[in-house]
Nucleic acid binder design. Sequence first.
DNA 1: AACGAAACCTACCGCTCACCAGGCAGCCGA
DNA 2: TCGGCTGCCTGGTGAGCGGTAGGTTTCGTT
Lengths: 192, 192
Amino acid sequence: MSYGDAMNARTRSEERRAEIVRAALEVIAERGYRGASLAAVAERVGLTQQGLLHHFPTKDALLVAVLEERDRWDAVPAGSWRVDLLTSLVEYNAMRPGIIQTFSALLGESVTEGHPAREYFTERYTRVRESMAVALRAEYGERLPNGLTPERTAPLLVAVMDGLQYQWLLDPESVDMPGAFRDFLRLLGEEA
Amino acid sequence: MSYGDAMNARTRSEERRAEIVRAALEVIAERGYRGASLAAVAERVGLTQQGLLHHFPTKDALLVAVLEERDRWDAVPAGSWRVDLLTSLVEYNAMRPGIIQTFSALLGESVTEGHPAREYFTERYTRVRESMAVALRAEYGERLPNGLTPERTAPLLVAVMDGLQYQWLLDPESVDMPGAFRDFLRLLGEEA
DNA sequence: AACGAAACCTACCGCTCACCAGGCAGCCGA
DNA sequence: TCGGCTGCCTGGTGAGCGGTAGGTTTCGTT
């Protein structure tokens, strides 16, 4: 195997796949997973539907790649979040409605029966709740208001982030997502 | 309850429509709106697809009826909520996963472009936020923690309810939705 | 008994979907 | 220079979609 060249076959193929995944993210944001046709994704990267199927043999395989992309995207730095970085994350999200829309649409679909992303989201939320509990403990210890534990607070934190996203996507003018999130954090850090 | 006698034509037609809407709620819960075929809804009430189209001329017309049903369902008693009744509402919801699933799936779809329920949800959330602000002011006055106003707290309250629903639908064993909601309310009512 | 409307049907249409089969061009290592 | 593999194409298929057209049965009203 030679590796001197600027771009070997494997690299080029991975580039192509990455392009396709990017296009799929867009189309899913616009039409949801069920509404996203392979043809629409293919057209966006200048392929025919069958050309796309060469890289991803089924529609579900493409979805798997999309979900893996998401895992890469918000991979926890050094294994755990810090609460103040969450604020930055929300602010960053507020500048990228596309990504938020993609995964909000997918989350909504995933609660329906037999949806191919259901298991992914179930496991993801288990993981994220645990991760958030760790972050909350690091920030507040056991001194959360009203004797709340980090484990009981984590689902609320996650719910606020998700719920705000829906309200914000529907009506960005009326909902200050980062501001509201900061308000929530202030509820946790009972002020000195 | 037999139809033949004490029921006039109009009443029977309305009964039929109500049956269809109920079936549509089920099918949407299972497959989302895009995934819900008229044929599937029709079969559930013992009709052909065209028999259904006699009562609702288009698929969108059926969706409108579904959304109207929801408005009737959670119509605010006497014009405004009381915060303690929200707890009961959440507890009640936790016993009816079907309804929650229907509207969580619809909410998720609604953020996609040109979705027929988008406007409905946008306006609904505007209304609900206002309604919640009123309820919060009635309960806590201006004395929310950290100088939060009812208007700024309302989006958080709504976000928590919605966000918890998704986590709960995906993994009811791991998420105590009513308990978590009570935790959130306890964050608002700073103790004593 | 006669009539008209409501309820529901069969048949059909054009379209879109995910996916299969088979072929062909171009590049790469041998 | 050749063989094979990768990338992508044309062509086609069966199923399912929402919706139309037009007929037939049912039934309350008169």
